[in-house]
Amino acid sequence: MKKLPAALFALAAVITVCSTPATAAGLTPLEQRWIAGMTPVLQHAKASGMPVDVVVQPQDAPEAAPLALGFRDGRCKLVLSLRGNPEGEATMQRLPAGLEDSALELMAAHELGHCRRYLDGVWFNLPAGFSAAPAPDGLSPDLQRAYLSMKSARREEGYGDLVALGWTAQRHPAQYAALHAWLSAERARDLLPGSHHDTLAWLKLARDPQALGSAPSMFDAALPVWQHGLNLDED
């Protein structure tokens, strides 16, 4: 995840969370479907005072992630890049049958995990008491920086996945096992072990929803499990 260029926002349709019906914003049916599925999470963000907007890219973006998060001017931007992007429809087709809305909520909650870390000013930072393991010997300085950046991104993805599962455990407990299995399968697709989106170590720790405890906040629920995974990851 990275901060998004100003040009994107000059071109994009920005939807203030839950203030404008999707059908009134000139959106495609696929964009409307994604936003409708994410709406409970977006409403929660608004009620919690999180500064979140939905940004819809009007230009074709065939190489982009269908859903990503940017941070600009103190606000989190959930960016939908669905036009001219076959992965947007492909992702919808891979959602678990009968649980499509809950899976879209899970994905939106993952992005809120990133948002929380940005708002707290701790993106890419380890908690107190943790230190990052050094890059492997024999790498050039550029590769060392790339390796450490990849590990930082993977840690953030792990936290985001746990926040998403925290939301699921609180809002859809009967669906937790199915959604956990779906998320694990998604993370295992075309997996390069240790890469940015290899969060399987954290997902294994959260196979049982009781691992996420009873904290009322999905962010607080994720933290102990995330830190447990950090202990393993930085050994």
Rank of each mutant, 00 (worst) to 15 (best):
P134R: 08
L99R: 15
A128W: 07
L179A: 08
V52F: 07
M50Y: 11
A132P: 00
A169R: 12
A7Y: 06
D220Q: 14
P134W: 09
V14D: 04
M38P: 03
N85I: 11
E157C: 04
G213T: 13
P29F: 10
W202S: 01
L223P: 00
T20A: 13
F219C: 05
F124N: 10
Q57C: 09
G158T: 00
P216S: 13
S140G: 12
P29C: 10
D235R: 15
A178K: 14
E111H: 08
D161M: 07
L165H: 10
R33F: 04
Q93D: 06
L112H: 06
P62R: 12
A10Q: 11
L99E: 06
D101G: 12
A65W: 03
Q170Y: 02
L232K: 06
P86A: 14
V54H: 01
P5T: 07
C115R: 03
P127N: 10
A6Y: 06
L106P: 02
A185T: 05
R171A: 11
P173D: 03
S152T: 05
W202K: 03
G138K: 12
L205Q: 03
K204G: 08
S195N: 13
G88L: 07
W167A: 05
G70E: 02
V225D: 01
F124D: 05
D120W: 10
A146Q: 12
T39S: 14
L143H: 13
I15W: 13
L126M: 08
H44S: 09
N125H: 15
L191M: 05
V55R: 00
T20P: 01
R145V: 10
A185N: 03
L80C: 03
L232V: 04
G74E: 00
A47Q: 12
A65D: 05
M1P: 03
Q59K: 11
E111N: 04
C18A: 14
R94K: 14
T28C: 06
W226T: 02
L11P: 00
G194N: 06
A109Y: 04
A132N: 01
C115G: 02
H172R: 14
Q227T: 09
A10K: 12
F124I: 02
A177G: 11
L8W: 13
I35L: 14
S214G: 09
K3V: 09
P209F: 14
P40C: 06
E105G: 02
